[in-house]
Design a protein around this nucleic acid. Structure first.
Lengths: 153, 153
DNA sequence: TATTGTTATACTCTATAACTATA
DNA sequence: TATAGTTATAGAGTATAACAATA
């Protein structure tokens, strides 16, 4: 055990990559996405979709364009996302009160019920994510990530 | 200034999302990808492609299937990635020495020259990434990210 | 039998541009 | 004029399955 453990198998050299925050973020992202898919794939919900459902739940009646900004998506992308969720009877488009151009988005009872299950699964997923971190380290990680893009909350 | 600053504009509620490491990682990833594209878009190089080029540079002669494992890609995906880089005369497929099934991947002189420019740009990009972090915080961040998936280096 | 690279194919996520209806 | 939602379309990135050549 004298050679530094590199990755995978064959002792490949990753050059400058491991020192780059952007690369480590990317690796973490890839692994998270896979664990998330394994944990919630059964419900056909990706991290992005989960975020959309949480945001609608927390802001019932919000408009599609508000959701677009919040979720970092184009308005046109939101159309297909909501089409998808509406087809699955998880979300409803209602006429907005003071603006006949807008839709007011709300979760259906099915959506609310699913969200409850999803939250439990995501909680377990998060626990796996940070299982090698102490509680203090976990808080530090979240804080540092927030600091990277303070404008984003 | 009494209300806690949330995101974007309209004071939307993000529910549990901000407390999730997975969500913060996702946000960081989105912003990083956009800054990367702005900084290197002129060269038509994404973070993934940059990683591939660095790995080939650091391991001249490696096989496509080794690259696949290192870059977390399927073998079939590597085919199109290398097709792309070879069309642009950045990478060459050479016959491997002891295995007539394999290709040995190497950067061309053009590839080496491009990589040099890319590294400079990526350096500037990284600097922007961590501009709100002290050097100590930067190191902590990278360390914590590595801890999330220790098996990955 | 197992592995390497390849092809054909398809799917997900996303964006751009142009349209309509409303404001 | 500007905004909200929509449509048509396209591109990037990825994977799965089946195949030929080679190990």
């Amino acid at each position: 055990m004298t050679r530094k453990k590199t990755s995978a198998d064959k002792g490949l050299d990753f050059g400058i990559l491991p020192s780059l925050a952007g690369y480590q973020l990317r690796l973490a992202q890839i692994a998270i996405f896979r664990d998330f898919a394994a944990a919630l794939g059964e419900f056909d919900v990706t991290p992005g979709l989960f975020g959309v459902i949480v945001i609608i739940d927390a802001n019932p009646g919000l408009k599609q364009s508000e959701l677009a900004r919040a979720a970092h998506l184009d308005r046109s992308t939101v159309v297909s996302v909501i089409d998808n969720l509406e087809r699955r009877r998880l979300v409803e488009r209602r006429p907005a009160e003071n603006d006949r151009r807008s839709n007011a988005l709300v979760l259906t009872p099915d959506g609310i019920a699913l969200l409850k299950k999803l939250k439990r699964r995501v909680g377990e997923h998060e626990k796996r994510l940070v299982e090698h971190l102490s509680e203090e380290e976990r808080v530090t990680l979240v804080t540092l990530l927030q600091k990277i893009f303070p404008e984003q909350r």
